[in-house]
């Protein structure tokens, strides 16, 4: 008799513990889905979406942004322009390390305010060296400092991009105009790409990006500067919501020294082609064979 009672009691305790443990195990999933609508969960990969699907997704993102952040935004889906291959060149002889480019990127691309995040990291290095290990990206003194030079580094939009080939879910790829993009709704946040990038150009959203509603840039793109969800990777996209409409990227417009030259590599009359043909040009970590679209040059 007492045996049966004991057995029942243990079974009862076991069942209770089991239910509690299951609830505990499922807790992260419940928290995870709090910010994730069913539509978003069932959404297909960007490149499998029909034009009608994409319009639906864009409208949903606009509605979500209005509801969750109180900001009225327009999310577009600008496609690559036929006959255009983007390239970017930066003049190390005139860059003075003022970080205006990083600041403009921060504002244009709706980065998290607390981390002061930006797709551009400006390295201060000893003249005559190219050593990122002994460089500073957090210098805070009048620039240019004596004996130093400054090298802004952002995504190099490699033609053979290691970040793309390591992605286990194909959430990142190279577009026809050369821009490497991320489908933030497909990224699983494994950060393989961040580890693979030799330029430290990718950023991970550890927290949900916080931006005051009035500071959110309403001119947004699906593959570019829409406010990213938590737990996904992001990167420089050459401001494709601007550049695919013929405009310059935000960092190029912000540069007070005129160090940045942006344009179409297929246009023989473009400034960038003149730079590549006439200046001393190099690419970063050429030996890795990543074939960057981002070039550095000197005046003399």
């Amino acid at each position: 008799m007492s045996d049966v009672t004991r057995r029942t009691a243990i079974a009862g305790i076991g069942a209770t513990l089991g239910v509690a443990a299951f609830a505990k195990v499922m807790e992260p999933v419940r928290e995870f889905t709090k910010d994730l609508s069913l539509d978003q969960f069932l959404q297909r990969h960007y490149r499998e979406l029909s034009p009608e699907d994409i319009q639906g997704v864009l409208r949903r993102i606009e509605e979500d942004t209005l509801r969750e952040r109180g900001a009225r935004v327009q999310v577009a889906d600008d496609k690559p322009i036929p006959g255009v291959q983007f390239g970017y060149a930066l003049n190390l002889s005139v860059c003075n390390g003022c970080r205006k480019c990083a600041e403009a990127c921060h504002e244009e691309n709706n980065h998290d305010r607390a981390t002061n995040q930006s797709y551009i990291r400006v390295f201060e290095m000893e003249q005559g060296s190219l050593d990122f290990e002994h460089a500073s990206a957090t210098y805070d003194h009048a620039v240019p400092a004596p004996g130093k030079y400054y090298m802004p580094v952002q995504c190099q939009q490699c033609d053979d991009a290691p970040c793309v080939s390591v992605c286990p879910v194909e959430a990142t790829w190279k577009e026809e105009d050369g821009v490497v993009v991320v489908d933030y709704d497909w990224c699983i946040g494994c950060r393989y790409c961040e580890a693979a990038c030799p330029y430290h150009a990718r950023r991970f959203n550890w927290t949900k990006p916080e931006i005051p509603a009035e500071e959110i840039n309403p001119d947004q793109g699906y593959l570019s500067n829409r406010v990213r969800p938590q737990g996904v990777v992001e990167k420089c996209h050459f401001c494709l919501h601007r550049t695919r409409r013929g405009k310059l990227p935000a960092c190029a417009e912000a540069c007070p020294t005129g160090a940045r030259v942006f344009g179409n590599l297929l246009d023989p009359e473009s400034p960038i082609r003149w730079v590549l043909a006439n200046k001393r040009v190099f690419v970063l970590k050429e030996e890795l064979g990543t074939r960057p679209r981002f070039f550095y040059f000197f005046d003399s």
């Binding site: 003075n96 990083a102 981390t115 995040q117 990291r121 210098y139 805070d140």
Partner: peptide, 21 residues
């Protein structure tokens, strides 16, 4: 000659805490 300027604030991310100064 281009004057000295104060740079815009640097990043605050976990790999590059604002260490200097």
């Amino acid at each position: 000659a281009y004057p000295l300027v104060s740079p815009a604030p640097g990043p605050n991310d976990r790999f590059q805490p604002a260490a200097q100064n």
